[in-house]
């Protein structure tokens, strides 16, 4: 569906889909940790911000260009995540949430206050979209769309493979009981750290597309507001699945874009929608879809008798 969408020729739709995809990567990064390990990380946008800022700084200061700038961005995001991962992977539950909240806010404060490097609230402007392999100028929204689509699909496939591999089984084991996994001879801190790095990697890729697409990098991208939106999108779609994360981001972003043109109070409306979903369908849109499909099969079985 996503690959035929640009044939409608409507630039607006393309822009919306591109935004859904780069925010989608961020939500998937969150959802991966939440669904596989039961850990809610409010610092998922940190890797997103590090790669985005790195690219913005390297390119506006004419130090490096794409793809090297993006590569450095990912590597730097992973290096920082290495330390963050070690700091948080001994905690779980509410403590994990609070710790990631604090570390996320610390990253936000650095982005906001290290003005000589990040230009503070104004942010870094004038990041141009790159030429891809000297052939495709990504200034064109359609080419940009296809590029992010390919990367997006690759990320999803990689995560699916990972979740369904033996590593995925270990993740579920750790999610249920760390002590039982330790008893079996597993270094659970290492398993959690690897999962955290995977999440950061996906998040940092989202950051690359974000900064190239809008051409601006400012602290808003890694604010608490951004973290909470990611969490809401993930829960909205269904916390237990990657597809849910994508659907959740899709709905939230579309509602945001459509409503923000009509009223300034669009966040209120999103809040009410969120409340309704939480109250009526704790497993989000995917939970509703599951219930409908179950009902459907039962209905079909009954009628075929």
């Amino acid at each position: 569906m996503l690959s035929i969408a640009p044939n409608f020729g409507n630039t607006f739709i393309i822009i919306v889909l591109i935004r859904i995809m780069y925010y989608g990567l961020l939500t998937i990064a969150f959802s991966f940790l939440a669904s596989q390990l039961g850990l809610f990380s409010l610092m998922v946008p940190v890797a997103f911000g590090v790669s985005g800022y790195t690219i913005a700084i390297l390119e506006t200061k004419n130090i490096l260009i794409f793809p090297y700038s993006a590569l450095v961005g990912i590597i730097l995001a992973l290096i920082i995540s290495t330390f963050l991962g070690v700091m948080v992977n001994r905690s779980k539950g509410t403590y994990f949430l609070m710790l990631t909240l604090v570390l996320g806010q610390l990253a936000y404060a650095i982005a906001l206050q290290w003005v000589s490097l990040t230009k503070g609230t104004t942010g870094i402007t004038g990041v141009n979209r790159p030429y891809l392999l000297n052939i495709a100028n990504l200034e064109s929204n359609i080419l940009f769309y296809y590029f992010i689509l390919v990367v997006f699909i690759i990320c999803i496939i990689l995560l699916y493979v990972l979740i369904n591999s033996s590593f995925g089984v270990k993740l579920r084991g750790v999610r249920e009981s760390e002590s039982r996994m330790i008893m079996l001879g597993y270094n659970t801190s290492l398993i959690k750290w690897v999962a955290f790095m995977v999440s950061s990697f996906v998040s940092s890729i989202g950051g690359i597309f974000f900064v190239y697409f809008i051409g601006v990098m400012n602290p808003d991208a890694i604010s608490l507001n951004a973290s909470v939106k990611v969490m809401i999108a993930s829960i909205f779609g269904g916390i237990n699945s990657i597809i849910g994360a994508i659907i959740g981001t899709g709905i939230i972003k579309i509602v945001e874009i459509v409503l923000s043109g009509i009223t300034q109070r669009y966040l209120l409306i999103i809040g009410v929608m969120f409340l309704i979903v939480i109250l009526l369908a704790p497993n989000g849109i995917m939970g509703i879809a599951e219930r409908i499909s179950k009902f459907g099969t039962r209905f079909f079985k009954k009628n075929s008798k």
Partner: peptide
């Protein structure tokens, strides 16, 4: 030594209450 290191050296444990995983 840490528990997982001890377990890796070749000690298996059948705990009281079985301690199985519901997710697996």
């Amino acid at each position: 030594k840490k528990t997982y290191e001890i377990a890796r050296r070749g000690i298996a444990y059948v705990p009281q209450g079985r301690q199985l995983f519901s997710l697996l």
